[in-house]
Each structure stands twice: as structure tokens, then as C-alpha cells.
Design a binder for these strands. Structure first.
Lengths: 211, 211
DNA sequence: CTTTTTTCGGGGGAAAATCCCCTTTTTCGG
DNA sequence: CCGAAAAAGGGGATTTTCCCCCGAAAAAAG
């Protein structure tokens, strides 16, 4: 019996094209092409022909790769997810692997690597590139504590990414300027930055603020 | 005679896959798949089988879509460029069109649209989506003067996207703090921003600084 | 019902950033 | 060589930011 693959990516051209690639491989067929996680879950609900492997983009609108992988791990643990991404961001890779992904490929990998990954994930259960192995190992060795921001801090952080002064931010948040200063100092500490530019850079890097 | 297409994209998986799509279309063949503009120019130098259409990603390392299109317009004006991009950024679209691109497609367009674009670009000479038409029209009506930054201003702008104080920036640039203040004020004026956060946001939005 | 933690608010001073008006030096086309 | 323009530097005032300190109220935990 052939392996059944689903491709999930918001870039239609890419998902269509990847589906085409996969169809070229012997023993693989494409059973679904979806634009985001929600579509995939819908498909799984309504169709009997479930995939056993999902090629999933990480950055998608509506329902991204991490959320979707978590949902799959919970409700369809027999489905193996291979993440596709344009970037090799350590944090994102870790999140995806922790969410249950069996592999993490960059979008500029060779066709042959994709094929091997598909085969390995089915046969061996996982496919890790050297980069991923390295990241996993270093994450084991120094389990750095995750930075957790509170709701109100995130709200402030977003406002700090504007040209408002802290006083103006205080008005918007209906707080005293002094309280806002408190948030600022707390974030300086937590995020290990020295000034407002540091806050802005952190917020953008971590997708708290999208410019 | 078949149309000859070259695909240029740094994401191997995507370019391979798009090449696969194009091969499905009758009257089209793929003569080259390149990872960036430099590779394409190399190919054009060394091979006789020139493409008449190039599908080109905009964001590439080494030599991006805009630079490459400019080079093509100059040295190989008979080659028609269709831009491929993940984002519909007005400024980038304008730059690509001005550089000589005959079409601008998002990476989440349908296969059929890609086919139509290829056909139209060859037959009619261009293919503009509604969005592109709108942008071109609005650009005609209000030809806003382009903001031109000097070398030294760009250098300063990048440094402003760090946690350095202006005094420290002055040291790095081997200038007096007062001169650096001058650059700052000039940029506030040019970019229509009020403070350093504005500078940082502008630099990031315009890819002068990549976080 | 206490105790602790979280949230909110504040004082005051030093440093940095912002703003306006001005001079000197360098560069460059005519 | 000269004059204009651009680049570099500056004085000084005001606002904002940064960085310590502190206390009260509210919420959560015991």
C-alpha cells in the first residue's frame, strides 16, 4: 500500500508544486493539499482517506504549523508531521519538535532529501538534519528557562513599538506613567535589554509586534 | 517552438517544484533552475539555450530579484521577467516593475494563474493582477518623491537599530556626537518620524536593518 | 483569616534624547 | 581659484528615558 501524504502550505503555488514532486516518488501518493491547519483538520474530519505523513509549513495564517501539529499529535497520533520552513530558527524548530514533528526541513532542501525524509519518517520514525540534531543536543544540555510575559506586559511591549512616549502609552493603557515605567523595567530585566530599542527589537524578533 | 522558461529561487524545493509545474504546461519547457541572480547570469553567459521567460523570486541572497531584473533589462532585453514573491509590498512591486518585470505574482497564486501569466507575458507582453494594476495607477496619480538616503545615513540608521547610545554610535562612526545628532535630525525630517523608535521601525520595514 | 504575591502608583536624580540656532571645514562644479 | 553647497561640529535648553529607591491596594495562596 502506498504512503499517503498531505501537503499544508498557504502558498498555493508551493503546495501544488510540492505535491507534484511527491507524486513523482514511487510508493507515495498525495491525498490532500491544504492552505492551513484548519483546512487540514476539516479534511481529516470529513474524509476516510487519512494521510500517514503531513508536510507542513510552519508560518501560516489562520492556524500555523505549531498549533496544527499539536492538534494532530493529540487527535491523530498515528499521523507523522514533517515541518517545512524558510528559516532555521532555533526556537521554532524546538517548538515544532516538541509539538510532535518528526522532521524539520528547510524549503531550500534538495528533492532527494525530501524523498529520503519521507522514507525515513515512515520507516525509522524520524528524520533529523545535522542542524536539527545539533539544536536538539544543545537544548538538552542547557535547558534555558523560557521567558514568560504577562498579558499586560505584552500589551505594553506592542505600544513600545510605536513612536509614543511612555506617558502617552500610559494614557492609552489607562495607567499612571509610573506604572508603565514599572513594566518597562520589568521587561528590561526579563528580556535582558538596556533600552527601548532593545524592547522593539525583541518584540519584532519574537513576533509580538509585526512591523 | 516551445517557450523556454528559467526558474530562479533560493528555495530549492520551491524552484524544483515550480519547474515541475511549468513542465506540465504544453508549449513550455524549463531550460534552467537557479538559486539566485548570479547563477542565472552565469547560465546566460555560458549557454546558448536562453530562456525567453524568467520566473524570478524577489527575495534572494547574493543577488536579489530587483538587481537581477535590472541586469537582465540592460543586457538581455528580450527576456521577459515574471516576479514571484511572498508579499504584496507596494514599494517592492513598483521597484520590480520599474526594473523591467512584466508581471508580479504572489507565491500563493493558483496553478492556472501561473499558466495564464506565462502565456500572456509571451503573447501580450505583460500580465498584471488587479492588485498590481491598482498600485500602478495610484503610483501614477501621486508620484511621491522617493526617499533617498546617503551612505552615511544608512550606516547610522543601522547602528540606531542597536542598543547603543548616540554617543557610542558616534565613537563607532568616528564622528562627534553632535554630528551624529545631525544625522538623526536629518532622518527624522526625511522619514517623517519623531524619535528613535521611528527610525528603528523604518529601517526594519525597508530592510535596511534585518533583525 | 492571615501571608504572600501581583499589580499599581510614586519620588528624585542622572543620563540620554530631542530640539533649535549657529560656526567651521570640506567638497566640488564652474 | 572661487563661491555655493554639503558635511561636520557646537552651545544650551527642554523633554524623555533610565534607574535606583519606596508604599498601598488587590488578588491569590496558605
Amino acid at each position: 500500500m502506498k504512503n499517503r501524504v498531505a501537503v499544508v502550505d498557504d502558498h498555493t503555488l508551493l503546495s501544488e508544486a510540492i505535491a507534484g514532486l511527491v507524486r513523482q516518488f514511487p510508493d507515495f501518493e498525495v491525498v490532500a493539499v491544504c492552505k492551513n491547519g484548519k483546512e487540514l483538520l476539516n479534511y481529516l474530519k470529513n474524509s476516510k482517506k487519512h494521510p500517514n505523513i503531513v508536510l507542513m509549513d510552519v508560518n501560516m495564517p489562520v492556524m500555523n504549523g505549531i498549533e496544527t501539529t499539536l492538534a494532530l499529535s493529540k487527535d491523530f497520533p498515528e499521523i507523522k508531521v514533517i515541518a517545512l520552513s524558510i528559516e532555521e530558527d532555533e526556537q521554532i524548530i524546538l517548538k515544532m519538535i516538541r509539538a510532535g514533528a518528526k522532521g524539520y526541513l528547510l524549503k531550500d532542501t534538495q528533492k532527494e532529501v525530501l524523498k529520503q525524509a519521507l522514507i525515513d519518517v515512515e520507516k525509522v520514525g524520524f528524520y533529523h538534519t545535522n542542524t536539527v540534531k545539533k539544536i536538539l543536543k544543545s537544548a538538552e544540555n542547557n535547558p534555558k528557562k523560557e521567558i514568560i510575559l504577562k498579558e499586560r506586559e505584552i500589551e505594553f511591549l506592542k505600544l513600545a513599538c510605536t513612536e509614543m512616549t511612555y506617558k502617552e502609552i500610559a494614557d492609552v493603557m489607562c495607567l499612571s506613567p509610573k506604572t508603565v515605567e514599572g513594566y518597562r523595567e520589568a521587561l528590561f530585566q526579563k528580556l535582558n535589554v538596556k533600552n527601548r530599542t532593545g524592547l522593539v527589537l525583541y518584540a519584532i524578533k519574537n513576533n509580538i509586534f509585526i512591523p
